[in-house]
Amino acid sequence: MALYPSLQGRRILITGGGRGFGREMALAFARQGALLLLTAARNGDELGQTVADANAIAPGCCIGELADVALEADCTRIASVARSRLGGIDILFNNAARSPAEAMTRFDRAAPTPFWEADAAGYERLIVTNIVGPFLMAQRLAPAMVQQGFGRIINMLTSGPTMTVSGRGPYGASKAALEASTAIWARDLAGSGVTVNGLLPGGASDTALIPGDNIGQRAVPGFRAGKNSGGGSEGTLAGLLPADIIVPPALWLAADESAAWTGRRFVAKDWDDALGWESAAAQSVTEMVDVPRIL
């Protein structure tokens, strides 16, 4: 795994940091010497375990807070905690998201739930968490980033095919909106020293977002990012990607080396860490268009 000296002491907020991609990133950033604030909306035990594991790597590097990014008051509180405990935030990973399973009555490829059978309350909850949540968190942190002349906002996106797949209800629509927001925020922040980029795994991944047993043991055996499939094949892999696939591009996006890249979209499964970051970034980047090309 690449080492980035600029991550030493960097202050990082990861929403949804207790499990899945959030946990993988938290442990990786702890190894890089970063300071971490993790949030989770529901499972305090998972959050506490990830915080403990990060602090076992680098004592005192990580704190955790239960908070729901869908609630404006919680986002305001987290920004306040960041200022009081860390002195602010340099990098925001908008990782927290709700699964389509929370809105759809069946999570079954063979018999997907049509949108008219969706749970309306679950549908609304997902939309607010996946779209409004990232906005609220970025709104509260971006002004200080602009003032200090440095910042990174990384929004967790999804593959193009996922945006329109039958039976997934509001999930794809929410991620399409977040992709558009990524492009807009990057333009709003142009020239400020704050970059905004999107990061996606490149396919369904072995996290709790995908219902089922044996989470963490369901990935395609021996999958190697950047080697098993070429660019342009996002969302088409048969089977699940390993959750730690997100780590190499996440480290780079938070580091100084990514300063020239903003308003872009990076596919983790196409990132080959062995190539060095220049070639890995070029291999994994896809264009962020004015209107996300989802149809």
Rank of each mutant, 00 (worst) to 15 (best):
S80V: 14
E117M: 14
E124M: 13
G202Y: 06
M163I: 12
R98S: 09
A219H: 13
D290R: 08
W252L: 05
R10I: 03
A190D: 08
S233D: 06
R23E: 09
R293L: 10
A260G: 05
I294K: 03
G172W: 13
D74Y: 03
Q49N: 15
E234P: 04
F29S: 10
G60K: 05
F150Y: 15
W271G: 04
R187A: 05
A41K: 05
G216I: 11
G44R: 09
A144S: 15
V291T: 04
G18L: 10
G231V: 11
A255F: 10
G149V: 01
E287R: 08
L240F: 15
M104A: 12
T262C: 02
F93I: 07
T129L: 10
E179Y: 01
F29W: 15
V69N: 00
F135I: 12
N197Q: 08
I153A: 02
P242W: 06
F150M: 05
A238E: 09
L66T: 06
F115H: 14
A2D: 14
V51L: 15
W185A: 15
Q217Y: 08
N155F: 02
L35S: 07
M104R: 07
I131H: 02
I210H: 11
A268E: 08
N155G: 03
I12Y: 04
A204Y: 14
A177R: 06
D206A: 10
P161H: 14
S166M: 12
G149C: 11
K227F: 13
I131T: 05
I89C: 04
M145W: 09
L136N: 02
L71C: 12
A52K: 15
A121C: 09
A282D: 09
R265S: 02
S205M: 12
P134R: 00
G17F: 06
G212K: 02
N43H: 06
L157N: 15
E278Y: 08
P248L: 08
R224D: 02
D272E: 03
R83D: 07
M104H: 07
S205I: 03
A96E: 01
G133Y: 02
P114L: 14
D108S: 11
A259M: 13
W277P: 09
M156R: 04
G263N: 01
A173Q: 13
V194N: 03
G44H: 02
P292R: 03
L189P: 05
M145H: 02
Y123H: 11
V51H: 13
F223G: 04
R264K: 15
Q139G: 00
L38W: 03
G33M: 08
A34N: 02
W116S: 12
Q217K: 07
A177K: 06
V196E: 00
P59C: 01
S258L: 07
N43R: 15
P143A: 07
A70V: 11
C61E: 07
A238H: 15
A103G: 11
G149P: 11
R106E: 07
A219C: 13
R98V: 12
G87P: 13
F223R: 03
G87L: 12
